[in-house]
Design a protein around this nucleic acid. Structure first.
Length: 933
RNA sequence: GGGCGAUUAGCUCAGUUGGUUAGAGCGCCUGCUUUACACGCAGGAUGUCGGGGGUUCGAGUCCCUCAUCGCCCACCA
């Protein structure tokens, strides 16, 4: 590329496609398990194939790519494992919804195989879309290893894990009150329920005490469930009912005797009537109460939401209709005491928006509790991983939610009544005997069995079993349920590496290094990965967990497609470029738990109106600034000759920028080590923009024009630009590669003090760690002096409205030592203030018409004949005096306070005294500027 | 109800172990086609650090309390 062709503004789109293709072609993202380099691994949190990636994904993947690119440059053998999640219920639900909308069919119309086929087609489409979005963002994943939680490699791991859990007696089948979606006919997880306030009623119903005139009144929001009542509970200490405990009631409508029980946990005597109906099969609290009192559980519900034969006369009727009839019948019998309006919260299924019914059904569980013989349960092992520090969660506060949740040690319900997912590898045989089974599977270690509570045998296998494998007349039927999506996700860190095969990948890359994710799945996912990692691999799945903030809109609302406040990362890439997206997101990734992005509208080139945020502007301007600084450098590197440099060849400003470069590299490395992405971004911006562009480039201009000084200036410039490319690359990979390549053409050998041939891509360039002796306190303090004086002169020019083009002749009055320092930068002071001359002296007569600024250690005088407004000048000086006096008053207040002087740290007092002395001399100088003082 | 977090400039956010006059970006104001960049340069204004109380020589920072907002968990017969 010729330098003349470099566009003035950075053009992200062409750089993105060009360099991403280049990286892929070179295979930089490919992880080699045979490498000698130390491993660094990240597994991507597999996005759900339900849809395209949103801004939260963009944030998370930016973070991961920064880490991976940084570690790759540090010389690690990096593996970023990409992939997607089948997301059982969510994916099946979107496909079912589409089926209904487009073909007016339910899943039962197309059948299990038909539906699964359609979901695969959907998955293929969205997986491609997701993966291409990641590539657009610049993610350096090892694409050859792309996995899907339902692919054969993951399936193998799922089967093996289930089998091992089954053998270890960690899997059991049990009754469980689940959240039943009568529309989708499946159980849904607690977190898949959305609660809404609904205006409902509270019905009070009278239950007569058998063989007595007395009765109890219960209040309920769900009267229809009374058909399944198996007790009424009162508080054990409630004087109103104490005498009735142990007596029997006649359940209205069903005419069934039910006991009056005492239960202090369920009943709050101050609430309602103080009597609670107990329906163990249809209410979570009642279920627990039922277990405590050994009550029967009467299930009233069919899977489709109609009532079953246990509801007597109400069998076959939909639950909503049952409610109406039960209320009407009770009223007719005079047992309905009252009906009050009552605002209650109704749980709706996220997917179908129909009310959730608590429903007693058979489910599969993973046992989390400790074993009866004292061996540690799965939950405890996972807790220990964090409390021992083998897994570190950042920010640390999130460890609490992890530990609190696991501390409950609740068994994990892993079965889902869905068709999309890993089928539970259990076959049931109701007719055979154990001897027949052991004969059929003799010598096989991939089959295990156990008696089913309901009769027959449960056979678990890592491979599919044919239904006739036991021979006639026995028939094996596979459990119809599939596993909870999190079961396969929980295996992700080792299943993707090929477990249970003893692969080279597993040996090299497990445990992984960092997991970056959102806090809402710390329990659902992170905890379960630790559980399964420990169970299968006997080791933690990752060493560090980074919890990134949640992105909200400007009003603090979560972004969502339905709310219309979502920002599509691809739109941002179209508008500003991938580097802009990444830089903004990295700058926003602070330690807070939420981050806000006020949403605005913008027009794409194709005319579409999309959501954006002004915060992406800074992401756009920064790479562009860097691009232009690089253009400046490249234009001035013509004729570059590599060469050895020694400290003595350098000017003060060279030493200064190298000192700052060394510090920036060191601090940046610390930022990244501690996941401080916002600080890292700010540090990069400050160094690039404020130090390099605003000062160093300006300092270097004159020397680059002078043939005498040009070679050394070029070598330093090339070395600093080289360093900038490397340091910026993890955050803004595209523009840095573009610059790296251009720099490579003109200055392939570069560096200080000894030039080296640069790598063919900044992707694989070495991460800088400069020698500590680059640190140069002297140069830093000298340049700070220059900057202070230049700023003072510029300020005087601007304040006094000196025309931009007018040359000035400032006078700086300082002591001899400082004067020598300033004279070394005289040329810079001149050029950066547009001065014809600069006078640096220990004393001078102040011209009558001049503007003056009194600094701590100097007086800066700008002679301005004919331009001075004496009155305004006097006013400014009085203001300056007032300012000094205010500070002096504050300091004197402290120094005159004996308590302060005696108790404060001596160095604080010392500093204050020094400051006071400076202020006093400053005050004198200012006083001289005022008339007749 | 339990837990976590937030509240600092118009907006989005920094502010290390308490210590000189609290910072940045955006926005705003003034000037500028200064040979890398107007996605820019130079200069500037803007804060009862949510309220109240306490500890301390000294509090944006530590403690208590109240308020508002957000999130997680549990629960509402």
């Amino acid at each position: 590329m010729s330098l003349a062709d470099l566009p003035k503004a950075y053009e992200p789109q062409s750089a993105q496609s060009r360099w991403y293709a280049f990286w892929l072609e070179k295979g930089y993202f490919h992880a080699n398990p045979a490498s000698d380099k130390p491993p660094y691994t990240i597994v991507i949190p597999p996005p759900n194939v339900t849809g395209a990636l949103h801004l939260g994904h963009a944030l998370n993947n930016t973070i991961q790519d920064i880490l991976i690119r940084w570690k790759r440059m540090q010389g690690f053998e990096t593996l970023w494992m990409p992939g997607t999640d089948h997301a059982g219920i969510a994916t099946q639900a979107v496909v079912e919804t589409r089926l209904r909308k487009e073909e007016n069919k339910t899943r039962h119309d197309v059948g299990r195989e038909g539906l699964v086929e359609r979901i695969w087609a959907w998955k293929d489409e969205y997986e491609q879309r997701i993966l291409s979005q990641l590539r657009l963002m610049g993610c350096s994943c090892d694409w050859d290893r792309t996995r899907f939680t339902l692919d054969p490699i993951c399936a193998r791991a799922v089967r093996e894990t289930f089998f091992r859990l089954f053998q270890a007696d960690k899997i059991f089948r049990g009754k469980r009150l689940v959240n039943w979606d009568t529309h989708l006919r499946t159980a849904v997880a607690d977190d898949e329920i959305e609660y809404i306030e609904q205006a409902g009623h509270l019905w009070s119903i009278r239950y007569p005490v058998t063989g007595s005139d007395e009765s109890l009144v219960v209040a309920t929001t769900r009267p229809e469930t009374m058909l399944g009542d198996t007790a009424v509970a009162v508080h054990p200490e409630d004087p109103r009912f104490k005498h009735l405990i142990g007596k029997t009631l006649t359940l209205p409508l069903m005419n069934r005797p039910i006991p009056i029980i005492a239960d202090g946990i369920l009943v709050d005597p101050k609430f309602g009537t103080g009597c609670v109906k107990v329906t163990p099969a249809h209410d979570p609290n009642d279920y627990q109460t039922g277990l405590r009192h050994n009550l029967p559980q009467i299930n009233l519900l069919n899977p489709d939401g109609t009532y079953n034969e246990n509801a007597g006369a109400y069998a076959g009727i939909d639950r909503r209709e049952v409610r109406k009839r039960v209320v009407a019948d009770l009223e007719e019998q005079g047992l309905l005491v009252k009906v009050e309006p009552y605002a209650n919260r109704v749980g709706l299924s996220d997917r179908s928006k129909t009310p959730i019914e608590p429903y007693l059904s058979d489910q599969w569980f993973v046992r989390m509790t400790d074993g009866t013989n004292g061996e540690q349960g799965l939950a405890q092992v996972a807790m220990d991983a964090v409390t021992s520090g083998r897994v570190q969660i950042h920010p640390e506060r999130y460890a609490k939610s992890y530990l609190d949740w696991l501390g409950e040690k609740r068994d994990w319900c892993i079965s889902r009544q869905l068709w999309w997912g890993h089928r539970i590898p259990i076959w049931h045989c109701g007719t055979c005997s154990e001897s027949e089974i052991s004969r059929a599977f003799a010598g096989r270690d991939d089959v295990a069995w156990r008696a089913a509570e309901s009769g027959g045998w449960l056979i678990c296998s890592t491979s599919d079993l044919a239904e006739d494998v036991l021979g006639a007349p026995h028939v094996l039927t596979q459990d119809p349920d599939v596993l909870d999506t999190w079961f396969s996700s929980a295996l992700w860190p080792h299943s993707t590496l090929g477990w249970p095969e003893p692969t080279a990948e597993l040996a090299k890359f497990y445990p992984t290094s960092v997991l970056s994710t959102a806090r809402d799945i710390i329990t659902l996912w992170v905890a379960r990965m630790v559980i399964f990692g420990e169970f299968n691999m006997n080791d933690v799945p990752f060493k560090d967990v980074f919890i990134h903030p949640v992105i909200q809109d400007g009003k603090g609302q979560r972004m969502s497609k339905s709310a219309g406040n979502g920002i599509d990362p691809v739109d941002i890439i179209d508008l500003y470029g991938a580097d802009a997206l990444r830089f903004t997101l990295a700058s926003a990734a602070t330690e807070t738990q939420d981050l806000r992005m006020p949403v605005d509208k913008a027009k794409l080139p194709d005319g579409r109106e999309v959501n954006t945020s002004e915060r992406f502007e800074q992401g756009r301007t920064f790479p562009n600034k860097f691009w232009n600084a690089a253009r400046f450098a490249l234009m001035n590197l013509e004729g570059y000759e590599p060469g050895e440099l020694s400290h003595g060849d350098l000017t003060i400003d060279d030493r200064w920028i190298l000192s700052l470069l060394e510090r920036t590299a060191r601090d940046l490395t610390n930022d990244l080590n501690s996941f401080a992405f916002a600080e890292a971004s700010k540090r990069l911006r400050d160094f690039t923009w404020n130090d390099f562009c605003d000062w160093y480039v300006e300092f270097a201009k004159a020397r680059l024009r002078d043939p005498e000084t040009r070679p050394v200036a070029q070598r330093v410039l090339a070395a600093v630009l080289d360093g900038l490319c490397r340091l910026l690359h993890p955050v803004i990979p595209f523009v840095t590669e573009q610059v790296w390549q251009a720099l490579g053409e003109i200055a392939p050998q570069r560096g200080f003090p000894t030039p080296e041939t640069a790598a063919e891509s900044v992707c694989i360039a070495q991460w800088p760690s400069y020698p500590a002796d680059w640190h140069d306190a002297e140069a830093e303090s000298i340049v700070a002096q220059w900057q202070e004086k230049i700023a003072a002169i510029r300020n005087l020019r601007a304040e006094r409205n000196v025309p931009t083009a007018a040359k000035v002749a400032p006078i700086i009055i300082v002591n001899e030592a400082l004067g020598a320092t300033l004279r070394e930068g005289e040329a810079h002071i001149k050029s950066l203030t547009n001065a014809a001359s600069v006078t640096i002296t220990t004393s001078a007569d102040r011209p009558a018409e001049s503007a003056v600024t009194v600094l701590g250690d100097a007086e800066v005088i700008l002679p301005l004949e004919g331009l001075i407004d004496r009155k305004a000048e006097e006013e400014r000086n009085r203001k300056a005096l007032a300012n000094v006096d205010k500070q002096l008053a504050s300091i004197d207040g402290k120094l005159n306070n004996d308590q302060f002087v005696s108790r404060a740290k001596p160095e604080v007092v010392e500093d204050l005294r020094a400051k006071r002395a400076e202020l006093v001399s400053q005050r004198e100088s200012v006083l001289k500027l005022l008339p007749n003082q």
